[in-house]
Design a binder for these strands. Structure first.
Length: 958
DNA sequence: ACCGCCGGGTGCC
DNA sequence: ACCGCCGGGTGCC
């Protein structure tokens, strides 16, 4: 850049230098991403193509960005440009500025873009040999209602939109006249698909993902559980993905350039490798074990993790912050109860005996760099630390031990000392709290070497990045990750350079606006993995987060994802679908329980049978139910009449809860349950702020104490840290706080648009065990449902006392009520619910899984307690006491025992009260399941609201 | 830019 | 000479 020009255009040059200068690529992505964080980034699914326009890009000679024929460009408004506040900048896929839109056209475009009337997308369809300007093909996308405004604005500046032909194409060809300039080979023309075809295509997305992924790999010696064949395949594939030198999907090498087939973008530098991917195996196929095996086996180029091992210990060493009793002390009890090396050294020996003891001789004379002859030996010989790790057990000559110890100590002085190189060592695993203990269990169970697993959790967690980097594995939760992220001053997880980051249940991260998403995207790592049985939860949009996390350029920027993948696919473009499949295929391994390898089932599970048992209420129960239903209906009817269903949503939910409770047991309603007072009052007769607050606390307690699986209207997930607004709507605390923060003083409730602010939010006081319960013990009445359950349990005990059962309810209070008859009949039982500490959970699970005589035969389980990873295979009977809103939650619950390791056939009994709200719920469940099958996502806020209202009608039979 | 536009030089053909 | 025409300088926003 000549200095005269720099002076001349000083202001703007400088600013661009700031934005683009520091990094060679990706900076614009950040700018774009920042822009997209603003609320204007609505569902583009409703967008239609208004038309196209030929424009020109000027000022090419001032910028370095290049564009090839057919390449897509992005258009970015530059409201602060000193020469023209209408300026529209043009940038290529990698974010380098190419030029500006000519000012005459920039004027109407600025208006359109600033008022969010349309999204304008550019493609440089052909190039002239003009070095100063180039033509750009602009397509205008937006909501139908804005069409007129756009057409008017353009025509007032003398521009006219040409009708867009064959819309949809991400690599938009726009006007038919331009078709001939399109040279990149695209064989198929866009043929819209029917929803049915689309759905099938989505299923197919994961088909054929097995091919050439059947090679097996043995796990490192430190893994002492024998992997099943399909797990060895997954391990081989994962290691391959981590050591891969391949170009990411859609990149091809052409001469000395790297060319992106989809965006036509070419760069000299090789695009960053995408190390990692999505392990999308079905639940129960052992994603956790496979990942543990990966961590231990593939530290560097297929070599195992070098383990320190000075002492004679050979077990997973779990550490967490010292003593602190705030809720959860994951893992610490392992250390307390089983001092290092004591418990499992026998396990280790067993393992070593069974595998190869040649280890030592090999490791001594193999020297450096000898090609591996057999599994294990080479890994050991090439890494003295690892040999030393085993040495503790195998009695390596003491000189070698000492040497290894010394080395380890030295390494500890360096940040993230690895024992072999200066590169990062630690793997960060982020998981939902519910499966955290499962990870610890699995490390404990499957690893027999000295692996440092540090639990980063609890208020006294060690916020020291240097310390964290030195661990082998750091386990934390999404919650901690996002909480830390809000503290700008101390974000240890963000500071560490991880060898590997694993997102367990990765689909929980799907809303790009959520804090946890930002935190996840900010993590630094060489390799990235997403574990999820259901990578696409609701819609294709969900996948973007994951792709973005994996940094699959250029799709980690929302614009390119939308243009090239999401919109073409949702518009039914077959090419778009093919592209999506190629993309997913390249980075995903998915097998289901019914997948077959070489004609054989991947995993043979015992049978599962589901029975529905209809319960008839007693005369008394029926009468009570009828009365409550009549009163509730009257109130809901009134809301419908007044059109205030949404504003009184919490009240309605509370009434529904009461009806459901009554189906289970009258005592669930509590003291107020028997009279009209039990119905929720309106806020009208509440005057003081204190009263209002108290009132809201009662409401939120009523709505949530039941375990009703309400979703947060912002993140669409199950509620996390639920809070209630003054207008009585429930959200995740972080979600609604984020809304309030971004909207400042004018924050409105997303559901009813009432004014809200942070100080007025009412927190959910949590599950309180009803105290009168214990006093009522003796006069505890039974109920039809309780009786039905007891008949089953007693029968089972006579039939075969070793059979274990899960008794599941959403109402923890109901579980407490059930304890009474269980005790009366001398059942030994355990209990697992959300209010329990991590420690007592683990104890409950262990006790239940124990097969010894006299071990508990029943587990009282709250539906949402314990996450997906929970392993309750000791049970072969499941009693679902009450239907859930979300049928998937029930299935998940059943799968906790119907999974790998289950020895017997599983029988599930669902109790449904005849002629009650429960039957209506089942109907809705069924309908929803069909909907999920048919329409793929595509539900916007309004549709969701409508469907909720419809649900209420159906439930109340209105 | 093999353009458009601006402004200075110039002035029959 | 308050025009036309010529040719050099110049050029995104």
């Amino acid at each position: 850049m000549p200095s005269s020009r720099r002076r001349r255009f000083g202001d703007s040059e400088l600013r661009f230098a700031d934005v683009f200068g520091t990094e060679s690529s990706g900076s614009l992505s950040q700018v774009l991403r920042r822009a997209e964080e603003e609320p204007v980034d609505e569902d583009q699914e409703e967008y239609v193509l208004f038309g196209t326009l030929q424009g020109s890009v000027v000022g090419l000679r001032y910028y370095t960005g290049v564009v090839n024929k057919g390449e897509m460009v992005s258009l970015v408004r530059e409201p602060h440009n000193p020469y023209d506040r209408n300026a529209v900048m043009v940038a290529n896929v990698y974010g380098s500025q190419v030029g500006h839109i000519r000012r005459q056209l920039a004027a109407p475009m600025a208006y359109i873009m600033d008022n969010n009337l349309a999204k304008v997308e550019g493609v440089v369809v052909y190039r002239t040999n003009n070095q100063f300007t180039m033509p750009v093909h602009l397509s205008f996308w937006g909501k139908e209602e804005n069409r007129l405004a756009i057409v008017n604005e353009l025509s007032s500046h003398g521009f006219k939109l040409a009708l867009g032909s064959k819309g949809g194409q991400g690599t938009s060809r726009g006007g038919a006249t331009l078709e001939r300039f399109w040279t990149v080979s695209r064989r198929t023309t866009a043929v819209p698909l029917t929803p049915e075809q689309l759905k099938n295509a989505f299923d197919k997305l994961f088909d054929d993902l097995m091919e050439d992924k059947t090679r097996e790999m043995e796990a490192a010696e430190a893994v002492c559980t024998a992997l099943l064949p399909h797990q060895k395949q997954a391990l081989a594939w994962m290691a391959l993905r981590e050591n891969s030198d391949e170009l990411p999907p859609f990149w091809e090498q052409q001469n000395n350039l790297y060319f992106n087939v989809l965006t036509s973008f070419a760069v000299k530098e090789r695009p960053d490798k995408v190390l990692g991917g999505i392990l999308a195996d079905d639940m129960g196929l052992g994603k956790t074990l496979t990942t543990i095996a990966l961590i231990l086996t593939n530290f560097h180029n297929g070599k195992p993790l070098p383990l320190q091992g000075c002492a004679g210990s050979a077990k997973t060493k779990v550490s967490s912050e010292p003593a602190k009793t705030d809720g959860l002390r994951s893992g610490s009890h392992f250390a307390e109860e089983k001092p290092q090396g004591a418990a499992s050294s026998s396990q280790c020996k067993r393992h070593l005996d069974a595998s190869n003891v040649i280890v030592i001789s090999d490791s001594e004379d193999a020297g450096e760099g000898v090609a591996p002859k057999k599994k294990g030996s080479a890994m050991l010989s090439e890494d003295s630390d690892f040999a030393a790790a085993l040495g503790g057990v195998l009695q390596v000559p003491s000189s070698q031990k000492k040497k290894a110890c010394k080395k380890r100590e030295d390494c500890d002085e360096m940040q993230g000392g690895t024992g072999t190189s200066a590169g990062p060592r630690a793997t960060l695993i982020v998981c939902p709290l519910s499966v955290l203990s499962n990870w610890l269990d699995q490390f404990e169970q499957h690893v027999c070497a000295d692996v440092n697993v540090h639990v980063y959790y609890g208020s006294n967690r060690i916020r020291n990045p240097r310390f964290l980097a030195k661990q082998d594995v750091v386990l934390t939760t999404y919650n901690i990750l996002s909480t830390d992220y809000t503290d700008k001053r101390c974000r240890p997880l963000q500071e560490v350079s991880w060898l590997r980051v694993v997102l367990d249940e990765g689909h929980v991260v799907r809303n790009p606006a959520a804090l946890q998403s930002k935190a996840v995207l900010g993590l630094r790592a060489e390799r990235r993995w997403v574990l999820s049985g259901t990578p696409i939860q609701n819609s294709l949009k969900d996948l973007w987060m994951l792709i973005s996390f994996l940094r699959l350029k250029p799709f980690d920027t929302r614009e390119w994802w939308n243009r090239v993948i999401q919109r073409p696919v949702t518009l039914g473009d077959e090419t778009g679908l093919q592209n999506l499949q190629t993309l997913v295929k390249g980075i995903t391994l998915r097998r289901t329980k019914s997948s077959r390898v070489g004609g054989r089932l991947l995993v043979e599970l015992p049978q599962k049978q589901v029975f529905v048992e209809h319960i008839t209420l007693t005369k008394d129960e029926r009468q009570q139910y009828k009365k409550l239903k009549k009163d509730s209906r009257a109130i809901v009817k009134r809301y419908f009449r007044e059109g205030t269903v949404m504003t009184n949503y919490a009240d309605i939910l509370a009434m529904l809860v009461r009806l459901r409770q009554l189906c289970c047991h009258p005592q669930l309603l509590g003291s107020s349950g028997t009279s009209d007072a039990g119905l929720v009052g309106t806020t009208e007769n509440v005057s003081t702020p204190d009263e209002l607050r108290q009132h809201l606390v009662e409401k939120i307690t009523l709505v949530l104490s039941s375990g009703s699986d309400e979703e947060c209207p912002v993140c669409l997930e199950s509620l996390r840290q639920p809070v209630m607004t003054h207008c009585a709507h429930v959200y995740c605390k972080p979600c609604i706080c984020e809304v309030i923060r971004s909207e400042k003083e004018n924050a409105k409730c997303p559901l009813c648009r009432a004014q809200i602010n942070i100080s007025e939010l009412v927190e959910y006081p949590g599950e309180q065990e009803n105290l009168d319960m214990s006093q009522d013990k003796d006069k505890c009445l039974s109920s039809s449902k309780v009786d039905a359950l007891m008949i089953h349990l007693l029968q089972l005990r006579t039939q075969d006392p070793s059979i274990k059962s899960l008794v599941v309810s959403q109402f923890t209070k109901f579980l407490s009520l059930l304890e009474v008859p269980l005790r009366e009949h001398g059942f030994n039982f355990t209990r697992l619910d959300g209010s329990m500490s991590q420690k007592s959970r683990v104890e409950a699970i262990q006790a239940f899984q124990d097969s010894a005589q006299g071990s508990p035969s029943v587990m009282l389980l709250s539906l949402k307690a314990g996450g997906v990873g929970l392993n309750l295979t000791a049970a072969s009977r499941v009693f679902l006491m009450d239907p859930a809103w979300n049928p998937a939650a029930e299935d998940q619950c059943i799968d906790r025992c119907h999974r790998l390791g289950q020895q017997s056939d599983v029988m599930v009994t669902k109790f449904i009260v005849k002629d009650s709200i429960e039957e209506n719920m089942v109907k809705i469940q069924r309908k929803k399941q069909e909907l999920v099958k048919k329409a793929f996502g595509a539900k916007n806020a309004e549709e969701r609201k409508q469907s909720r209202i419809q649900d209420i009608r159906a439930l109340m039979e209105l």
